[in-house]
Amino acid sequence: MAKVLVFIDNPGPALKKASLELLTIARSLGEPAVAFNGELHDDVAATLGAYGAQTLYRPSAADLDDYLVGPKASYLAAAVLTAHATVVLTENSAEAREIAARLGIKLGAGVITDVVAVDPDGTAHKSVLAGSWTTTAKATTPVAVLTVKANSITPEPAVTGTAPGTITVEVPETATAASARITARNEKAASGRPDLAEARIVVAGGRGVDGNFGPVEELADALGAAIGASRAATDAGWIGHDAQIGQTGKTVSPQLYISAGISGAVQQKAGMQTAKVIVAVNKDAESPVFEIADFGIIGDLFQVLPQATAEIKKRKG
């Protein structure tokens, strides 16, 4: 059976939903193992077992996080060889994709990014050109490296859990040689809201919020949603850049995307047009966002959003 290695990097005290999705996909492709980096909390170890990980690989070096990408790729390459893996799965974050990129060169392995589904024969499904085309692609090399988007499947624990043994992987001493060093790290404050990439519902605000994200936040909280933004809103400094949706921000595919005060430029659409349902609130009937909205309201977001928030609260009691 194919050995499938899932790379999990610094999950902290609990595994993200995206990691659970990777483990679930790994089981559908073969025998799952995990290449882990960072501190391993008990809960995480237990969850890895519950999701069927057969073996846990950990790096001999503890300083991988002090460098940008390169050394982690060296570690992962060593883990793939140790595990005899033929498929490697990582999340689709900027860093994971770059690790995958270098891993591909080290192993002579084809890399496919933005994967949303993998067939048992390794065929990967993805959408390209800002969500306007869907393609299937395959690695033609002995090892395939796939970076999988969050929210691709429903995670499911294994029928029978495991108690994976740990194997230490020697990270080559040269791994850090030509690497850029991370000399300072500023952790961002947690918002308490769902992670944008994984959220089931996203409420996003644009230039139309005019500096006041209050109505967007209140609607998001009533719906248990994450908050997104257009580049106009992040450039204005009304909200952090990590909330930006679009070509140069995050790509999201939630069940519901509520766009408020956003015109719907191509670069914005690139990040959200694979959402299942799109709702748009904009006071300009000519806004391109209405071309892709399942439900559009021509109106003032400062009227519509608070009224919707109040109605949801009333219904939820």
């Binding site: 990408v69 990129a101 990014t113 933005d114 800002a130």
Partner: peptide, 8 residues
């Protein structure tokens, strides 16, 4: 849109 080339 892969961002693979720079890292490679």
């Amino acid at each position: 849109e892969t961002s693979l080339v720079p890292a490679q």
